[in-house]
Simulated assay, not measured.
Amino acid sequence: MKAMKSNLFLCLCAAVLLLTGCCGCRSHQKRTQRPLIGTEWKLVQLGGRTMEGADADSFTLRFAETGDVSGKGACNRLMGSYQVGEDRSLKIGPLGATRMMCPDMDSETQFFQMLDGVTHYDMDGPMLMLLDEGSLVAVFQAADSETK
Rank of each mutant, 00 (worst) to 15 (best):
M1S: 13
K5C: 05
S6L: 13
L10C: 09
L10M: 12
L10E: 09
L10R: 12
C11K: 12
L12P: 11
C13E: 10
C13A: 15
V16M: 14
V16S: 10
L17V: 14
L18T: 13
L18Y: 14
L18N: 10
L18W: 14
T20D: 05
G21E: 01
G21V: 03
C22V: 14
R26T: 12
K30W: 10
K30Y: 11
R31H: 15
T32L: 14
R34I: 01
P35H: 00
P35C: 00
L36A: 01
L43F: 03
Q45K: 08
R49T: 10
R49S: 08
T50V: 11
M51V: 02
E52T: 15
A54G: 05
D57V: 05
D57W: 01
S58N: 09
F59V: 03
F63I: 08
A64E: 14
E65M: 10
T66Y: 06
G71H: 00
G71F: 01
K72P: 10
S81R: 11
G85M: 12
G85Y: 10
E86V: 13
L90Q: 04
P94T: 02
L95Q: 02
G96N: 09
A97P: 11
A97N: 11
R99V: 08
C102H: 01
C102R: 00
C102K: 00
M105P: 13
M105K: 03
M105N: 06
D106Q: 12
S107I: 11
T109W: 07
F111H: 01
F112M: 10
G117D: 02
G117E: 03
D122W: 10
M123D: 01
D124Q: 14
P126L: 01
L131K: 04
D132T: 04
D132K: 09
E133F: 07
E133Q: 10
L136H: 08
L136A: 07
V139P: 02
A142D: 06
A142N: 03
K148C: 15
